[in-house]
């Protein structure tokens, strides 16, 4: 644990809050008004795809291609995951094999 218990609890609360806000928001704002063509509806549709793109980058943010290991373990593992996932479409298999390959390469 790096954070103090109070700091940890704060993180738990803000993350829980964000989850609750996004889940309840549509039921609160679209009670009566016209739900189609709203900006929020649009964001709910496209933001998830952009968010996952951002998260992939976020996970790799500390990879430095100018110092050993040059990000090679990450690149190989991700390539394997992509190929495996296109081929088998099995989430658990792709995550398991991908992570195992990465741990071996490290």
């Amino acid at each position: 644990m790096i954070l103090t218990p109070i700091q940890t609890l704060t993180i738990v609360i803000v993350v829980a809050l964000s989850s609750v806000i996004t889940r309840f928001l549509p039921f609160i704002i679209f009670k009566t008004s016209n739900k189609s063509n709203s900006f929020i509806t649009y964001l709910g549709k496209v933001l998830p795809y952009a968010a996952i793109g951002m998260l992939v980058v976020y996970c790799l943010k500390n990879v430095n291609i100018t110092v050993p290991s040059y990000g090679i373990p990450e690149a190989i593992a991700i390539l394997c995951i992509v190929v495996l996932h296109y081929w088998k479409e099995n989430t658990l298999l792709s995550i398991g094999v991908g992570t195992a390959i990465y741990m071996i390469l490290l």
Binding site: V14, V15, S18, S19, I21, T22, R23, F24, L25, P26, F27, F30, K35, I40, T41, L43, G44, K45, L47, P48, A51, M54, L55
Partner: peptide, 14 residues
């Protein structure tokens, strides 16, 4: 960060 990650829930709710 979690707000953006969870934005897809808005679509589910709608």
């Amino acid at each position: 960060m979690s707000l953006v990650i969870n934005a897809r829930h808005i679509f589910y709710g709608i």
